[in-house]
Amino acid sequence: MGDTPERDAGQVERGYQRPVGDGPARAESLADLLGGRAGAVDATLPPLAFAAGWLLGGESLWAGVGAALAVGAIVAGVRLRRGDRPRSVLIGLLAVCVAALIAVRTGRAENFFLIQLLSNAASALVWTVSIVVRWPLLGVLVGAVLGQRARWRRDPALLRGYGRASWVWTATYVLRVAVFVPLYLGGQVLGLVVARVALTWPLVAAALAVSWVVLRRSLPAGHPGLRHPVTGEHAGG
């Protein structure tokens, strides 16, 4: 296997010929294609604000919720100004509002993190199922970004690589659930905040890097890369 999945044309082996007319390959990483770290940083700000308000208010639930909602609104405004999709921004703000509502209605500060716990459990299940049914979500996401629809699935090497790399992301959700559950059951609000920060943007950055390594090492030497699935019309004779 090569150092990167996108090799120079002179190194392409029989059966993995680069489509005619394409220029030299560029070794894009998943971080280049998917980004994600900026959004992950944004996601940690409302929980941090909740903890700060909760503590400064003498463990006042209303102070924590008010701080989280205020910071959530500011984050939404910043995201809109930098060009994020309004739908994505709205979903992020809605998640903060729902978390705040659950905490207020139940009167338990730890319930501010219940949505996060449940969403990670659901994500772990969905990613696992996607791999089992051979529609790995990492391939779906990258394929959508590259405008490939389902063409990547007709490339056995890419399908296999996306499946292996998707296990990395599945593991991140399982890890979060394993950490969040005992903290939630123990009512450890500050512990949940620390876990939320530690297992958000640093974990996303690590998952982007590790899944990229797994993916590129799953591709055979000479494979033209993520942008060029080797389907019937591109395979050599």
Rank of each mutant, 00 (worst) to 15 (best):
T4G: 11
P19G: 10
L146Y: 10
I91G: 15
G92D: 14
P220C: 09
L215C: 12
R176N: 11
S123Q: 12
E13Y: 02
L141T: 13
V129G: 03
R81N: 15
V133Y: 01
F180L: 04
R227A: 09
P136F: 06
A51W: 14
E59G: 03
A27T: 03
W201E: 01
S29W: 01
L101P: 02
S130W: 12
S29L: 06
S29K: 14
G10H: 04
L101N: 02
V181M: 06
V179W: 15
R7L: 06
A70N: 08
T44L: 13
L138V: 00
G225F: 07
A178R: 11
Q11D: 10
V104Y: 03
G57C: 08
L192C: 06
A205T: 03
L183S: 09
A38G: 11
M1D: 09
G161L: 03
A235L: 15
D8R: 08
R26F: 11
G191I: 07
F113T: 01
L101Y: 04
P24S: 09
T4L: 13
L158M: 15
R217C: 08
A206S: 03
A144Y: 04
G72T: 13
L185N: 04
G237D: 05
V12E: 08
P156S: 14
L141K: 14
V12Q: 09
R160T: 11
D22M: 09
V204P: 00
A67V: 02
P156K: 07
G15W: 13
E6C: 15
R154T: 10
L45I: 15
V142Q: 03
R196W: 00
L114S: 07
Q188D: 14
L190E: 11
R18I: 12
S60Y: 00
V65N: 00
S166D: 13
V145S: 12
L90E: 14
A99Y: 00
A95Q: 07
R196A: 03
R151S: 14
A150P: 01
A195F: 02
V168N: 00
G36T: 13
L138M: 06
M1E: 02
L159N: 08
E13T: 08
A63Y: 07
L69H: 09
V142A: 01
V210C: 04
A67R: 09
V12F: 03
V214C: 06
G92M: 09
R108Y: 09
G139E: 07
V104G: 01
R14Q: 09
G36M: 05
A103T: 02
H234A: 12
P86G: 12
R26C: 03
T106K: 03
T231D: 13
A49R: 04
G15E: 11
R134Y: 07
V194S: 03
H234D: 14
R196K: 01
S130K: 13
P24G: 06
Y184A: 10
